[in-house]
Design a protein around this nucleic acid. Structure first.
Lengths: 281, 281
DNA sequence: GGCGCCGATACCCGGCGAATATCGTCGCCG
DNA sequence: CGGCGACGATATTCGCCGGGTATCGGCGCC
């Protein structure tokens, strides 16, 4: 008899319908049926009568419904009390980009729900340092993009986005549905500030040293397309602002979204775990 | 945060020693360490400080220890209350043999602990029907030996014992350390009563029809060795009484210990589940 | 009597839990 | 001060379980 199984049972007992309960639990019906049967085996009593007319609770089932609710409530309170006993906690998260994709939204939502007492501080990364000062201790965990120097850090990839070229709408190449890096040969490029992570720099520059305006932020990179006529690069999925178009680049390695940390405190591990789940579904 | 994990934590918090806690939990130390780390990730706080001097509870850990104990106690009470709500329950178990091997002992012990309110009735099987009247509804579940006709029944094998010949201590073959069926050719045999399950009969008779005294019980079979000079057969592992010796038979199929039932009620499924665990460890 | 709803069953697969082997670290003692 | 022993962490493998998809069976209903 585990808490997860009890959560399943409460759902079924409330819905009195395996299919609906499964939907509510974000799972399919067969494993739910099996879990309930295991629960019945565990307590040694039939909890639900399944008939063509529908599902009904037995006396034992009704008793368990009450008890299970109480137990689950108490389990929730345990989390809160332990967090309170641990004292005030803060987690500083470094984020690169707008942090507004569906995955990040789910992550923020789930993390708040899981750790209501934790104060989360967000720090925006600029293009100089995709780790947002992870090594220096400016942030506890970074939700960012690779690649960068990983020595001393733990990095888990969450997703990988194809990369596209950002072009002015009136650019001759803007009508193409895909491009190669060779199509952009001879164009002006952008540069990163001194001291930028070499792997990061090499990735966005296709391995070649470039000349052009220095950009420190995503916005500056896009502005450079308009004002300096440079090539712009961005992971696909973002809607480009204004008169800009994004055309997929077929020969550029997909850009990974990663979560990274230096010290694996419980709050950081929890963040990584929830991030993995949030970006999976 | 699952109940199993909380049980682990309570053990470690009480022992303040991962190795001893693991032993108490009948598991090894590495998975226990990992489970505690997962628990810490789940609640978002360090629960134990591991230092060379030993293991100590943090404030959060001390809080969780209290809460976890309460939660586990409540979970135990839930089982009792649900069983009470289900009403008086009886399970009739058919047993073939003395039911005194270590597996059966562990099974009886664990089943009593798991279902304290259930009245268990035991019915001894005789050799006429190894299922002990399972099909007729005389018992709910049988802890017995195969092979027998399984139509309409569900049978799970728990173990298989090599079979040996039971011989008088003064028998010329009694000093051999192993025998083949051929060594027993020409000896008197025993018979089962009319109506005995054909597969059962065939198994013990090596497939051939036999002549000899009729035996209805294990004791009678052994007595027949002494009084009628027949061949006796028994699974190894039993200590033969009196002046009898058991010599392994190399060419006889091992005899399975099985649990069998007709209707899979929760109490019966639980019995089968506990039996599997009891005979495994 | 056919159709549709719904729970059960069969089967497959990925991931997690547990075991074994090994490592890193720290205290201790010679 | 260096080897050694104790103990928790890590690495790796393996088996099982939880979850998925596909399908069945049974009953109600039109």
């Amino acid at each position: 008899m585990e808490l997860r199984t009890l959560r399943y049972f409460v759902a079924v007992a409330e819905e009195l319908h395996f299919g609906r309960a499964a939907a509510r639990l974000h799972m399919s019906q067969p494993p739910l049926s099996r879990a309930i049967k295991q629960l019945e085996t565990g307590v040694g009593a039939v909890l639900l009568v399944r008939s063509a007319a529908g599902v009904a609770l037995t006396p034992a089932g009704a008793a368990l419904l009450d008890e299970a609710r109480a137990l689950l409530d108490q389990a929730d309170r345990v989390r809160v009390r332990v967090a309170a006993a641990a004292g005030a906690a803060t987690l500083t998260v470094g984020i690169l980009g707008d942090g507004a994709d569906p995955g990040a939204t789910r992550l923020a939502d789930a993390y708040r729900r899981r750790h209501p007492g934790v104060e989360v501080r967000v720090r925006d990364a600029d293009l100089t340092d995709p780790t947002c000062g992870l090594r220096a201790g400016l942030v506890d965990v970074a939700l960012t993009r690779g690649p960068f120097d990983e020595t001393g850090l733990t990095v888990r990839e969450l997703r990988a986005d194809p990369v596209g070229a950002v072009l002015r709408a009136d650019d001759p190449l803007a009508r193409r549905d895909r491009l190669e890096l060779a199509d952009l040969a001879g164009r002006r490029w952008f540069r990163f500030p001194e001291g930028t992570d070499p792997r990061w720099q090499g990735y966005w520059h296709g391995g070649e040293p470039r000349e052009g305006p220095v950009v420190r932020a995503v916005q500056e990179c896009l502005q450079a397309v308009l004002w300096n006529g440079t090539v712009g690069l961005t992971p696909l999925g973002h809607r480009p602002p204004g008169e800009l178009t994004v055309v997929p680049l077929t020969d550029m390695a997909p850009n990974p979204v990663v979560v990274a940390w230096k010290d694996a405190t419980p709050l950081v591990r929890s963040f990584a775990e929830i991030a993995t789940a949030a970006y999976r579904g």
